[in-house]
Simulated scan of single mutants.
Amino acid sequence: MYLPRSFREDEPARIQAAILDYPFAQLVTFGEGGISATPLPLMLDADAGPQGSLIGHLARANSQWKTADAAVEALAIFSGPQGYITPSWYETKRETGRVVPTWNYVSIQVRGRLSFHEDPETLLDIVTRLTERHEAGRAAPWAVADAPANFIASQLRAIIGLRLEITAISAKWKMSQNRTEADRAGVVEGLRAEGSTAAEAVADAVAAAMARD
């Protein structure tokens, strides 16, 4: 990933929080037949391995778990807040007109050694942990144990568990850090005026970047 210094993020807690908030990733592998990619939710286990691990599962019918070359590192790509930035929001437009549109976004690329797991105990642990994570905070959270045991067993037979032991993380927060303070303030104001949840998330990220500088 192209990573200019002004957009580079190295703070582990901030990166982990983004993976927690935006867990839907693209899992990319190389192997028989070339490159494969699967969209799926992944969960960070920060204590599993020197740099942590990602856990999740694939459908057994998805051939990626059979074709991925274990000798080649896999890549998980997470996308955070993102959105179009019009130059009309920049103070510089009014001053010089020397501006162009851009796109603000958060992207996290996680590389690591990928392994797949078929044993029922490991699969049950993975789906239980994923469920507890995403049901947390709900008024009436659903639990794996709410379903009949024989039904859960049949569902587990239809999936393959995965663990990606992390070897490297690259994180990019492109949130107008290369613009003047006045331009950045205009971006925040313009995004908030859009009124959408997505625009608000980008505005919050731009404002947070401003507060850190």
Rank of each mutant, 00 (worst) to 15 (best):
I126A: 01
A140V: 03
G186Q: 13
R98A: 14
R163F: 07
L162N: 07
L156K: 04
I160L: 05
W173L: 15
P101H: 08
A140G: 00
D10K: 11
P141N: 00
A198T: 11
R184Q: 14
E32C: 00
W65Q: 12
A136V: 01
I166F: 05
A61R: 13
P41Q: 07
R163M: 11
P101N: 06
V72G: 00
A171P: 12
S53N: 03
D69Q: 01
T128A: 06
A46F: 01
T122M: 09
F116T: 12
K93Y: 03
R113V: 14
F116Q: 13
I152N: 01
S115T: 15
L20R: 12
E73N: 08
A205M: 13
V188E: 05
P50S: 04
G137P: 05
Y84M: 12
Q177T: 08
S176T: 06
R133W: 00
G112H: 06
G33I: 12
F30H: 10
M210G: 05
H57A: 04
I35F: 03
A198D: 15
G97C: 11
T197N: 04
L27K: 05
S88Y: 04
E11P: 03
I15H: 02
A168S: 09
I55P: 00
A68Y: 06
L123A: 06
L123C: 08
V28Q: 07
A136D: 02
D21T: 08
W142A: 04
A46I: 05
V188H: 03
A211P: 08
S196Q: 07
G161M: 08
R5M: 10
V110F: 04
A208T: 12
I126Q: 01
P141C: 02
E121M: 08
Y84D: 11
N178Q: 14
S63A: 14
A171L: 09
E189N: 09
F30R: 02
M43Y: 05
L42E: 00
E118T: 15
S6A: 15
